[in-house]
Design a protein around this nucleic acid. Structure first.
Lengths: 346, 346
DNA sequence: CTGAAAGCGCTTACAG
DNA sequence: CTGAAAGCGCTTACAG
């Protein structure tokens, strides 16, 4: 069933069928009704590809999750409490506006080939990127090519920066880290360690800086031995904590995300230390698991769902208006106090 | 940049460009090389819609997550540790075979309109459905219409059943429930309660049956007071457990999934009972959180990732071969013993 | 091995 | 208000 057949049955031309489909004004109420009736009767839906070819707007968004971390596991994303809620909000918001989302996962750089193709062959008209390292070159290239793009957690270096030509949605990592560290300091901690995330990512960089600033602001000197590099995985949190505790005896650890905090808890338990009695820890993100841990994890909540929503609706706007606009959101974070930090009495 | 321009530059016809793109045999090595060179130089990628219109196969799969549960929350899927790993495997497997996946979420029946449209307007060529109730009518209709479909956890009633014309991937819910219940019985429990899932879903039905059969097989009579209806959400597990404990004193509860088990743990704690000392519990699914609970949850592992993989690759096969074939998988489950069940000594 | 031409199913100026 | 026609960018018989 196609437009020609509908036209014949309704006794009009294909043009008129098209006008009815696209809800144009210049059609008699009577013909419109007649055509609509035939359309309904035959369950006719125009061929999306034909519509696109003929010039209609594409309503498919690409959602690209960059996840280079767990390179050896069978399923790379399954453990991620971070990407999943984000995705579902993107889909929700998009669907509500008659958009659909094509979801793809980038495990390694070569996977960007597929991403590029989706733009080049016009399968998608715009894309959202999350999980990339700071200044991800493949994304920059796409922006330079003029595609409509929204990125999560990317730094905008200046007007020359490609990211200043797209929709940028960040959370206040610096502020969150500052607040988390300050909280520990307020509780009386001085010997505070930090286990950083993947330093290629903006969030990890900013969280480290927030930690340092809070220390400096309160006159606590920063000891490099207390700063250990992780990479945001649970395992890296475990290993970093092990390493840390071999040589140092901090009274608190600020971890750059919750997954690593889970690893840290394991390591701490193996060292026969109790949380928070012997050592306080604080995470970042407030992933779903955080509240179920024993003890429940004190952390910094990132408003990931709002970020997803903002990115999606802005991107859809850009596509509807047919304009590449610049927007830069910094979403505020919130300290979630649970049971892994203890007031130090001296 | 389109095929005509490439053709002109390379000094051949559009037909030849197309032949090179599609890797057909009848082109001289020399012309092929020349054309390929121009294509690379201009970064040309054929317009997907045009290809489709002209008769090429569509390589987009729909992934439809049916999630009617949490109707009032802002984000319906975000808490779901069940759908997310499934999705990522589907995407992974599809991407590896040059397929892309369009992901959509069905929160209510009207959302099926979008699903239908995606098939009708040829945006997708096949679809995977997960989370539906048993005998989901909207899916049946699509199968009857001849679309290529894979379903997860749907019962096949017979040859007349539409589901006997598609790819069905189930887990052994009955066997898993049987084994879980048997395990509790082996530990000495007799007074075993069951909190069921959403009884519209096949898994909930089968798990209840498995529970009953295990009881009957060991000569324990089934008490209807010990069977409470839940709906698979954490909250329903909480409420059902509350209700159960008001009137009964089971020594063990078999919950139809892990989310409800989490709710049950909360309710049990509020009743000042200890797990597993005062009461044993066992869940189903083995979601990510399960191992982090305190105490770590004994449960039945569903091979969800394999199910995703099997469904996807079968569906792609069907699409490639251009045939609607029937396949029915029953994936075996595995009892995962952790710390929420105790041996009863009498 | 290669090209000219028809056709896929639409939309959109252009006439009237 | 409506229709005939051109065109979107491909693929694929059909000739040669």
């Amino acid at each position: 069933m196609n437009a020609s057949e509908i036209a014949k049955i309704a006794g009009v031309s294909r043009s008129t069928v098209s006008r009815v489909i696209n809800n144009y004004g210049n059609v008699t109420d009577e013909t419109r009704k007649r055509v609509l009736h035939v359309i309904k009767e035959y369950n006719y839906v125009p061929h999306a590809s034909a519509q696109m070819l003929a010039g209609k707007k594409n309503k498919i968004l690409g959602l690209f999750i960059i996840d280079r971390k767990n390179e050896n596991s069978f399923n790379k994303m399954c453990t991620s409490s971070y990407f999943s809620p984000f995705s579902s909000v993107v889909i929700d918001v998009a669907n509500k506006q008659q958009y659909n989302v094509l979801n793809s996962i980038v495990n390694e750089n070569t996977d960007f080939t597929n991403v590029r193709e989706l733009f080049l062959n016009k399968t998608i008209s715009a894309g959202i990127f999350i999980g990339g390292k700071n200044n991800e070159p493949a994304i920059m290239e796409l922006i330079e090519s003029g595609y409509k793009i929204a990125v999560i957690e990317q730094e905008v270096a200046g007007e020359q920066d490609p990211f200043s030509k797209c929709i940028v949605v960040n959370s206040d990592s610096f502020g969150g880290a500052y607040e988390a560290t300050k909280y520990l300091i307020t509780l009386g901690h001085v010997n505070i360690a930090h286990i950083s995330g993947d330093m290629e990512q903006l969030t990890a960089i900013s969280r480290l800086e927030g930690y340092k600033k809070a220390m400096v602001d309160t006159g606590i000197s920063i000891k490099s031995n207390l700063i250990i590099k992780g990479n945001y995985t649970e395992d890296s949190g475990y290993k970093a904590t092990k390493k840390l505790l071999q040589k140092e005896t901090p009274t608190a650890i600020f971890l750059a995300n919750d997954s690593m905090a889970i690893g840290a808890m394991k390591a701490i338990e193996e060292s026969n230390l109790k949380i928070p009695d012997d050592i306080s820890i604080i995470g970042f993100d407030d992933i779903e698991v955080a509240r179920y841990l024993e003890p429940a994890l004190t952390t910094v909540r990132v408003p990931l769902l709002q970020m997803a929503s903002v990115a999606t609706s802005n991107l859809i706007n850009a596509n509807e208006e047919n304009v590449n606009f610049y927007a830069n959101y910094k979403m505020s974070i919130e300290l979630v106090i649970r049971n892994t930090c203890r007031k130090l009495v001296e």
